[in-house]
Structure formats: C-alpha cells, structure tokens
Write a protein that binds this DNA or RNA. Structure first.
Length: 436
DNA sequence: TCTGGGGTCCTAGGACCC
DNA sequence: TCTGGGGTCCTAGGACCC
C-alpha cells in the first residue's frame, strides 16, 4: 500500500461489443453480443444494451439467445480489437513507462513513474480524466472506466464501481471503509469455489474475513491463498506494476460442435494444432520442453497428459508426434470411448533461446494434414455481421450473405443509415477492411 | 446439444538424489 | 531389518482471470 493514490487501473467498457458498435453504426444503442456462435459457443462480451436482458460474459450463446434473441450475435474480430488495444496502450505508455497489461482491454499504470508534479488526489484525478478523454478521441468514442488507489487491489475494485465510463478515486486511508461492507467475491482470486468455502465458514463480507485468523484461513483455502486473503482483507497489497511478464506456456485448443470419436481425425486435429503452436513459438523466439494435450470428454471431465523432452523444441513435427502418442495412451486406456468435445495442445517449460540444431535432423516440420478437418467455429467466407469490408463506396460491413452474393451496408458516423449494395462473393473489389 | 480460448498459479504425490 | 529428511523435477488436476 502506497501513501498516495498512484496506481491506476483502466478497463475499456464492453470492449469487443463497443468496437463492433463503433465500426457498425446501425448497431449503436442496440444489444450486441460478441462470442462463439457455434452450438457450443459462449459469450465473450455483451453490450450494455444486451446486459439489460440479463446477458453476461461466459454465458452460453444458447442461453443468451433465449434471453435476447433480437441482439446482433457477432463472431469476434480479434485483429480489430488488437489494433484498438495498441492505440490505447500507446496512450498509457506515453503517460508512464510502467504499464502492466492484464488483457487487451485492461491495464495497471504506475503514476508514480509518470513524472507528474505531485500525486495528490486532485492531480491524479485530472490525469485520469485526461487519459479517458484521449482514449475516447483516439479510438473513435470508446469509453474506459478507471480506478485510482494506493494499490493494484483497490484500484481494480475501484474501476468496477462506476462502470461504464466511470472514474473512482479511493483516497489513501479510506480503503477499509470501502472494502469492509463488500462481499468477499470482490476480491480478485475469490471465485465460486473459494466463495462457497468461505460462506460455509460463515464468512460473507470483507469485514467477516478480517475477523478470521491466518491459521484458520490457511486451513480453509490452503497456504498461499489463505495468507493472501488475510492480507487483502486488511487492504495490504504492495505488489509492483510489472511491465514485462514472460510467457510461461503457449497452447491451442478447440471445442467441436459434435463430439469426436475417430482417432485418425483426432490425430490430424492435434497435428494441425501443433503446427499452430510451433508457429507461435517461433514467432516469439521461444521453445519448450513439456508437451501437454488437453482432452475434454463428452461429460466435461478434463484430462491433461504431458511429457517432457530432454531439450526444448519449436518443431511442429516433434510436438505433433508426442501429442499423438499421448492421445494414443488415452485411447488404449479407453478414456476416449464416450466421445471428446475439446482437444488441445500446449507447450510449457519455455526457454527464450532456440535450441541449437545439434544433429541436423531436428528440422521436421510436418505439412498441413490434407484431410478436411472440422472447424471449431464455422466461418463462411463472408458472414453477416462478422466482417468489416472495403468496397467501392468505402468502408462498410457485411449485412447479409448467401448464394454467392454479399450485401454490404456502407455506414459512417455521419451517415448511420448508409446505402446497401450487393456484390458477388468473389468480387475482387470486396476486401477485408483494415485501418490505414 | 448447458458450460470458449488463452493463459497463470497452486497443490499434492511420486521419483530420485544426497 | 523396521524403513529419516530435504530439495528438485515431473505429472495431474483444479481454481481463477479476462
């Protein structure tokens, strides 16, 4: 805990949905749900309009449709979100060299390193307001909620208190007044399982938690978690803002609309996933020793099997072969008999150096499998709602598609009900839109 | 047709070594 | 004959986060 409210937590509001509404003006003011749209999809982000119908993140898309069937259901456009995220992080890094990203839409900023004249409440508040305005300007109207406090813990709670488009400062010294009446679930790290254990022990609020001894907490939730909770209940948190965090693992997984039972098909899926993992390792100059497969069965039980190599690898073939061997062991044991809904491959035990090719035979990247593989998410060439495109009239978005014809709606902030035109799906003038 | 995908951290047990 | 103890690595599973 610092003496001043020098920790800023910034969180972009309903981020994915907001980017979609920015790019597709006809969706503004309307319920927008971004997430998996297959039979087993879940909601990533719901716009605030959709939330009034009870739609929440992590809810199954099926349930979201039941609650809010008239919403626009969109598959995420990660590249677009990434671009916006980079703009926002640019603003934050101009402010302070100490920026810790938590995800595409969330970060901590250490204002003590920002070179402000002082760190009084008025000064940091004005700074945060300026940043919020800058974010809105640079991103084309996205709003951010900000919390300012003396620690990461309290800043994060604060940014949540006045969403969306809010700014909450917790004056140093008042942390416990804020915290004590709150439910223990506000503490990051207290999820459903921990909350239930605490509830059974009669602990509901942070004030309740504060009455419990470390020994008792350790008994209830384990050593690490217990000692952490003991401190957080007292608002004791001196964690630093860490701008660089090294990657510990790289993985690819997919959930399939129909349970998998065919072993050759599953092996091909693992092989393709291994190729993707290897490509990402190489792109980041990483290699790793431990290969893990993840198998989620029809009944949602999850099995992990791993094996560790003597030396790190970034070779698709090596990863794929080991992954297939591990899968084979599950088949032999009969574990896969009921069907598999999710399959994945990961590499951990990472080294940030590339293993020398000692024997010259390690270059064994396998070709893409030639069988057509099921897609975890079906994605036609041009799909309504999913694509922002560029065509002869400028920027538009795909309003509908089918039978080789794509209908594009051209909208800008100035002309929210812009014209609609149709194109042949293979019209070369129809290009995915990228920001210049 | 309940329950994504990409991660991090923790726990616990067994092997192995000194 | 009567089985210590600590450290490290590996594996598996679970909780949690966005």
């Amino acid at each position: 805990m610092r003496a001043q409210a020098s920790v800023m937590h910034l969180d972009l509001d309903a981020f994915f949905a907001s980017v979609e509404q920015r790019d597709k003006p006809s969706l503004r003011g309307k319920p927008v749900i971004v997430g998996g749209i297959g039979g087993r999809g879940v909601v990533s982000t719901a716009s605030y309009e959709a939330r009034t119908f009870g739609v929440r993140s992590a809810m199954s898309t099926r349930e979201a449709r039941a609650l809010c069937g008239h919403a626009a259901f969109l598959y995420p456009r990660f590249h677009a979100y990434k671009r916006v995220s980079e703009q926002v992080f640019g603003i934050l890094r101009d402010l302070s060299p100490l920026v810790e990203p938590l995800s595409l839409d969330e970060a901590f900023v250490d204002l003590a390193a920002a070179g402000l004249p002082d760190l009084e409440v008025d000064t940091v508040t004005a700074t945060a307001e300026r940043i919020r305005a800058e974010v809105a300007e640079v991103t084309g109207g996205l709003s951010a909620s900000v919390g300012l406090a003396s620690s990461k813990f309290i800043a994060k709670i604060a940014s949540d208190l006045d969403k969306p488009d809010g700014l909450v400062v917790v004056a140093p010294g008042t942390e416990l007044d804020l915290l004590r009446p709150m439910n223990v679930k506000v503490i990051p790290g207290v999820g459903p399982a921990t909350a239930e254990r605490l509830r059974r022990a009669g602990i509901h609020t942070v004030a309740d938690l504060e009455q419990v001894s470390v020994e008792e907490l350790v008994r209830l939730v384990g050593k690490s978690h217990g000692t952490n909770l003991y401190k957080l209940a007292r608002a004791q948190d001196d964690r630093r803002i860490e701008p660089e965090r090294e990657t510990k693992s790289v993985s690819v997984e997919g959930t399939y609309d129909t349970d998998l039972t065919d072993r050759p098909l599953m092996e091909q899926i693992l092989t393709r996933q291994a190729t993707e993992v290897a490509a990402r390792l190489k792109k980041n100059g990483l290699s790793g020793r431990t290969i893990t497969i993840k198998v989620r069965l029809y009944d949602f039980t999850t099995i992990n099997r791993s094996a560790t190599l003597p030396a790190p690898t970034d070779q698709a073939g090596t990863i794929a072969r080991l992954a297939r061997t591990l899968l084979g062991e599950l088949f032999t044991a009969g574990e896969t008999a009921g069907g598999v809904r999710l399959l994945g491959v990961g590499v951990s035990g990472l080294a940030d150096w590339i293993q020398e090719d000692l024997f010259g035979d390690d270059v064994d990247d396998e070709a893409e499998p030639d069988l057509p593989l099921p897609e975890p998410v079906r994605r036609p060439t041009w799909a309504a709602g999913m694509d922002v495109v560029h065509a002869e009239m400028g920027r538009g978005w795909v309003w509908g598609s089918g039978r080789g014809v794509v209908t594009v709606r051209f909208e800008t902030a100035e002309t929210p009900a812009g014209p609609v035109r149709s194109y042949a799906a293979d019209d070369p003038d129809l290009q995915p839109y990228t920001e210049s």
